[in-house]
Amino acid sequence: IEEVKKIVSEIQSKQLTRITINGNTYQVNSPEELVEYVRKVFS
């Protein structure tokens, strides 16, 4: 979970619009959307 928080804060600070998780690239339009992807991947 700490690793996830680190990734999320990194993305928020860079305002990235794409994230790659487990080889899948997602278009991310908002931090909320990012959190949803993270929940799916780590749930």
Score class of each variant (00 low, 15 high):
I1F: 13
I1T: 12
I1L: 14
I1M: 12
I1S: 13
I1R: 10
I1D: 13
E2D: 12
E2K: 07
E2V: 11
E2M: 11
E2L: 10
E2P: 07
E3V: 12
E3Y: 15
E3L: 15
E3M: 14
E3I: 14
E3C: 15
E3W: 15
E3A: 13
V4T: 04
V4A: 09
K5L: 14
K5H: 13
K5S: 13
K5V: 11
K5N: 14
K5W: 14
K6D: 07
K6E: 07
K6G: 05
K6S: 09
K6N: 09
K6R: 13
I7A: 04
I7K: 03
I7W: 12
I7R: 02
I7T: 03
I7Q: 03
I7L: 13
I7M: 08
I7G: 02
V8F: 07
V8W: 05
V8R: 03
V8P: 02
V8D: 01
V8H: 02
V8Q: 03
S9T: 11
S9K: 14
S9Q: 15
S9G: 09
S9V: 09
S9L: 14
E10V: 10
E10K: 06
E10D: 08
E10N: 06
E10L: 13
E10P: 02
E10Y: 13
E10W: 13
E10Q: 08
E10H: 09
E10G: 03
I11Q: 01
I11D: 01
I11A: 02
I11E: 01
I11P: 01
I11C: 03
I11H: 01
I11G: 02
Q12F: 15
S13F: 10
S13T: 11
S13R: 12
S13I: 12
S13L: 12
S13D: 12
S13H: 13
K14G: 08
K14C: 13
K14I: 04
K14H: 07
Q15A: 10
Q15G: 13
Q15W: 07
Q15V: 04
Q15L: 10
Q15I: 06
Q15K: 12
Q15R: 13
Q15E: 05
L16A: 02
L16I: 04
L16K: 05
L16H: 03
L16G: 07
L16E: 02
L16N: 01
T17D: 05
T17L: 08
T17W: 06
R18C: 14
R18K: 11
R18W: 11
R18P: 00
R18F: 08
R18L: 08
I19L: 06
I19A: 01
I19K: 01
I19R: 00
I19W: 06
I19Q: 00
I19S: 00
T20P: 01
T20K: 05
T20R: 05
T20W: 06
T20I: 08
T20V: 10
T20D: 03
I21F: 09
I21Y: 04
I21M: 03
I21N: 00
I21W: 05
I21S: 01
N22I: 04
N22H: 09
N22M: 11
N22Q: 07
N22W: 12
N22R: 10
N22L: 08
G23R: 02
G23Q: 03
G23M: 03
N24T: 15
N24V: 15
N24M: 14
N24W: 12
N24I: 15
N24K: 14
N24H: 13
T25M: 13
T25V: 12
T25E: 08
Y26M: 07
Y26L: 11
Y26W: 14
Y26T: 04
Y26I: 14
Y26G: 00
Y26D: 03
Q27G: 04
Q27F: 14
Q27S: 13
Q27P: 01
Q27L: 08
Q27V: 14
Q27E: 12
Q27C: 14
Q27A: 11
V28S: 15
V28K: 15
V28C: 15
V28P: 00
V28L: 14
N29A: 10
N29Y: 11
N29R: 08
N29E: 10
S30I: 05
S30V: 05
S30T: 12
S30D: 05
S30A: 04
S30L: 06
S30G: 03
P31N: 02
P31F: 11
P31I: 08
P31K: 02
P31V: 13
P31A: 05
P31G: 01
E32L: 06
E32N: 07
E32Q: 09
E32R: 05
E32M: 07
E32K: 05
E32S: 07
E32W: 09
E32I: 04
E33T: 03
E33P: 00
E33K: 04
E33I: 03
E33V: 04
E33Y: 03
E33S: 03
E33C: 09
E33N: 05
L34Y: 03
L34C: 05
L34H: 00
L34D: 00
L34E: 00
L34G: 00
L34W: 04
V35T: 05
V35L: 09
V35H: 01
V35S: 04
V35P: 01
V35Q: 04
V35M: 09
E36D: 10
E36V: 08
E36I: 06
E36N: 06
E36P: 00
Y37E: 06
Y37P: 00
Y37C: 14
Y37R: 09
Y37Q: 08
Y37V: 15
Y37I: 15
Y37K: 09
Y37T: 11
V38L: 10
V38H: 01
V38N: 00
R39D: 02
R39H: 09
R39C: 13
R39E: 07
K40C: 15
K40D: 05
K40Q: 11
K40E: 08
K40L: 12
K40A: 10
V41S: 04
V41Q: 06
V41K: 06
V41Y: 13
V41N: 06
V41G: 03
V41L: 15
V41H: 13
F42S: 02
F42N: 00
F42C: 12
F42Y: 11
F42G: 00
S43Y: 12
S43D: 10
S43K: 10
